[in-house]
Write a protein that binds this DNA or RNA. Structure first.
Length: 476
RNA sequence: GGCCCCAUCGUCUAGUGGUUAGGACACUAGGUUUUCAUCCUAGCAACCGGAGUUCGAUUCUCCGUGGGGUCACCA
C-alpha cells in the first residue's frame, strides 16, 4: 500500500490562523493514524507579502502545540528550478504560453468586463501569438512576460473530493491562469502541484476555499502527466455572522490564544471538533485519542462557526483536570502561570489552587489573585453580612482573630481553619455567614472570592491576622 | 453577476424511510453553600420552504429560498 504523506503548506505572512491550525491538525492526525508523514512546506512564492521570521514563528507555534512536522522543512523559494522546468515542459508541449500583457492592460480589461457585467477573465490576447513573434519578444530586453496555462476548449473537468464528492466544471468557465510570474516565481497553482507530486503527497487536505480551483489543478496534473492525489477539502471556519473566519471579529491568531493561556490540549481538542465528529458522544480527546479515532469519512460539509465560549469551556475543563490530577503536567501549568504573575512568581501554585476552577484561561489569574500580594481596599459596610449589623460583624471578627491566633503554624491547615471558623459560629449562636463573610472580605477585600479557609491557608497566619486586625479598625 | 459549495436547537453536532429527533456549549431554574466558581439535578431550544417518490418523509429527487466561497503576476 502506498505511503500516506500529508502536508501543511502555509505562506509565511504572519501569525498562524486558527483555521490553518485546524487544517494542520487534520493533516497531522491523518498522517499519524496511518503511520505516514506530516510535512511542513513553506509557500513563500509571494515576495511582496513575505514576512521576515514568519516561517520560523509558524514552526515554533506548531511545535509548541505538539504538531511536529516530519522530515525536512521545504521552502518553495529554494525550488524555483523545478517550477521553471515544469513550465517549460508545458510550453514545449503547447499546453502553456508566454504572455506579454502588461498589468495595466489586464487591469483595463478587467474593468471593462466588469462595467459590461461580464465575468472578469483573461481574453487570450497572447494565446495565439506565432512562434516567431514569441521568439522575438523573448529576445528583446525588458519585455517582461508571464507564463499562462492554456485551458483546453470545450471540456468538462471531473473532480473527486473525499468530503464533497464529485464536482464537474466546464473548461469555458475557467481562465488561462498564470503559472510563472514576471519575477520568475511560480504562482500557488504551479508550485503547489509540482511540489505535491515531487514530495509524494498522497492526500491534499486543505480548506474549502480551494475547491473552486480544484478543476484547474486537475487539468494541471493531467498536463504535467502527474497522477492525482486524493483531495480532501475541509469546511470553512466561520465568524458568528457566517462569513469566513477573519480578524476583526475576534481573535484568530493561535499565538494570541497561547499568550492568553489557552492550553494546547484545549485548542487542539476544540478545533478537532469543528467539522469533524467521532460519531459518539465523546467530546474530550487528547491528541493520541484523536489520532486513533479520526477519520476522513466523518468530516462534514457545512462550515462551522468558531465559538470562543466552547473553547473556553474546553480550556477551563483541561485546567481543572490537570490541577486535580496533580501530575507532571500540573507542574508545567504552575510554571506557565508564573508568566502572568510578574514579581509574584512564588505565588503561582497558590493562585492556581485558588482560581483554577474560576478561570477560562491562565492570564485571568493575574487580576484574580492580585489581592494575595497586596492589602485589599474595601469599605467597612462590605464586611457586614446581609441583614446582620456591624456589632455582630465586629464580634465575629474578634472571635475569629482570637481563635485563629491560638492555632500554631503546624495546625494551620485547610481543614482546621474551616473547622475553627465553623466552631465559632456554633458556639456563639451566630450564623456561618456572620463569621465566614466578614473574614472573607477582610482577607480578600472582595464580595466574591474563594472561601476564607482557603485564603487563610494561602496567606499564612501572620498576614491573615494582620488583615483581620485592619478590618476591625475599619469598623470603628 | 458567472461558477462552485452548503442547509438539524443561538452555537458545535448525532441520527433514522416510521425516534418522546440524542449529546455538548451557552442560557434559565433549583440543590450543595458564607459569596463566587466548581459539582449535582431539571428546564428552554432545531429538522429553511414547496412539489414529487412513498402507506409514511427531517431523511431520497427536483425546484425555490437563504447563506457562504471563489473569480489576481495572493496564497
Amino acid at each position: 500500500m502506498k505511503k500516506i504523506r500529508t502536508r501543511f503548506a502555509p505562506s509565511p505572512t504572519g501569525y498562524l490562523h486558527i483555521g490553518s491550525l485546524r487544517t494542520a491538525l487534520f493533516n497531522y492526525l491523518f498522517a499519524k493514524q496511518n503511520n505516514g508523514e506530516f510535512i511542513l512546506r513553506i509557500e513563500d512564492t509571494d515576495q511582496q507579502r513575505l514576512v521576515e521570521g514568519a516561517a520560523d514563528a509558524l514552526l515554533e507555534t506548531l511545535e509548541s502545540l505538539g504538531l511536529r512536522p516530519d522530515g525536512k522543512i521545504e521552502h518553495q523559494s529554494n525550488r524555483l528550478a523545478l517550477y521553471e522546468k515544469a513550465a517549460n515542459k508545458l510550453i514545449s508541449k503547447g499546453l502553456a504560453y508566454p504572455c506579454f500583457c502588461s498589468s495595466e492592460r489586464l487591469d483595463r480589461l478587467r474593468q471593462e468586463q466588469q462595467a459590461n457585467k461580464q465575468v472578469p477573465k483573461y481574453d487570450g490576447h497572447c494565446r495565439h501569438l506565432s512562434k516567431d513573434e514569441v521568439a522575438q519578444r523573448l529576445k528583446s530586453v525588458g519585455d517582461k512576460h508571464v507564463v499562462r496555462f492554456k485551458i483546453p476548449k470545450d471540456q468538462i473537468v471531473q473532480a473527486k473530493d473525499i468530503v464533497y464528492g464529485k464536482i464537474s466544471v466546464k473548461t469555458e468557465d475557467l481562465d488561462d491562469f498564470v503559472l510563472i510570474k514576471t519575477d520568475n516565481y511560480p504562482t500557488y497553482h504551479l508550485a503547489n502541484i509540482v511540489d505535491d507530486y515531487t514530495m509524494g503527497i498522497s492526500h491534499v487536505i486543505r480548506g474549502e476555499e480551494w475547491l473552486p480551483s480544484l478543476p484547474k489543478h486537475i487539468l494541471l496534473y493531467q498536463a504535467l502527466g502527474y497522477p492525482l492525489p486524493e483531495f480532501v477539502h475541509l469546511p470553512l471556519l466561520l465568524n458568528p455572522d457566517k462569513s469566513k473566519l477573519s480578524k476583526r471579529q475576534g481573535d484568530v491568531a493561535v499565538e494570541d490564544f497561547i499568550k492568553k493561556g489557552y492550553l494546547p490540549e484545549a485548542l487542539l481538542n476544540y478545533v478537532a471538533l469543528l467539522g469533524w465528529n467521532p460519531g459518539t458522544d465523546q467530546e474530550l480527546f487528547l491528541i493520541n485519542q484523536l489520532i486513533e479515532q479520526f477519520s476522513l469519512e466523518k468530516i462534514n460539509k457545512a462550515g462551522a462557526v468558531f465559538d470562543v465560549n466552547k473553547l473556553n469551556w474546553f480550556n477551563a475543563e483541561y485546567i481543572r483536570r490537570i490541577i486535580s490530577e496533580a501530575g507532571e503536567r500540573y507542574q508545567q501549568l504552575i510554571k506557565q502561570s508564573q508568566g502572568y504573575l510578574q514579581g509574584h512568581e512564588d505565588g503561582a501554585e497558590d493562585a492556581l489552587k485558588l482560581f483554577g476552577s474560576r478561570i477560562n484561561h491562565l492570564s485571568e489569574i493575574s487580576e484574580l489573585s492580585a489581592f494575595l500580594f497586596k492589602l485589599p481596599a474595601y469599605t467597612a459596610d462590605m464586611l457586614v453580612f446581609k441583614k446582620s449589623d456591624s456589632e455582630k460583624t465586629d464580634q465575629g471578627l474578634n472571635l475569629s482573630l482570637g481563635s485563629l491566633a491560638k492555632l500554631n503554624d503546624k495546625d494551620w491547615t485547610l481543614e482546621n481553619l474551616n473547622q475553627t471558623l465553623e466552631d465559632i459560629a456554633g458556639k456563639h449562636g451566630l450564623t456561618p455567614g456572620d463569621i465566614f463573610w466578614p473574614v472573607r472580605v477582610a482577607l480578600s477585600g472582595q464580595e466574591k472570592s474563594p472561601s476564607p479557609s482557603e485564603i487563610l491557608e494561602v496567606l499564612g497566619k501572620e498576614e491573615s491576622l494582620n488583615r483581620i486586625k485592619l478590618a476591625l479598625n475599619k469598623l470603628k
